[in-house]
């Protein structure tokens, strides 16, 4: 009985971790510049691929925040999907902090997905 309870507990904990890992939110820095760009993205969410949970577009910040299931999609696929809508996008963690609007500290950038950093300034 105790072994069964321990197993159930471990299984529940594992499932929680899995559930958290399954969903990811990535903020992309884009070249969008007006409301019609935002409307275009929101009208074509399926173009970003499968497993999309939420999309939030900020024209003022030129960002697109995408929440998705990692088992069904990836940052690369979403970038490709945005490119098919004529929107160039780069995950914010890959941008130099000074280029990001609003600016983030290096510590905040490190907390996001680590990876090679791109000079996004030329795209803004």
């Amino acid at each position: 009985m105790i072994a069964l309870l321990i197993s159930l507990g471990l299984g529940w904990a594992t499932a929680r971790d899995t559930k958290v890992e399954d969903v990811k939110t990535t903020v992309f820095v884009t070249d969008i510049h007006c409301e019609s760009c935002s409307t275009k993205i929101m009208n074509n969410v399926p173009a970003l691929g499968k497993g999309i949970k939420d999309v939030v577009v900020s024209v003022a910040d030129k960002t697109v925040a995408v929440t998705y299931y990692t088992s069904k999609n990836s940052d690369e696929k979403i970038v490709k999907g945005l490119r098919s809508l004529h929107v160039e996008a780069t995950p914010v963690a890959q941008c130099k902090p000074c280029c990001i609007v609003p600016p983030v500290t290096p510590e905040q950038a490190q907390k996001m997905n680590a990876g090679p950093q791109t000079d996004c300034c030329k795209d803004n």
Binding site: H33, C34, E35, S36, T39, V59
Partner: peptide, 8 residues
């Protein structure tokens, strides 16, 4: 019209 940039 959806095709007009209203923010500019």
């Amino acid at each position: 019209s959806l095709g007009v940039c209203a923010t500019n």
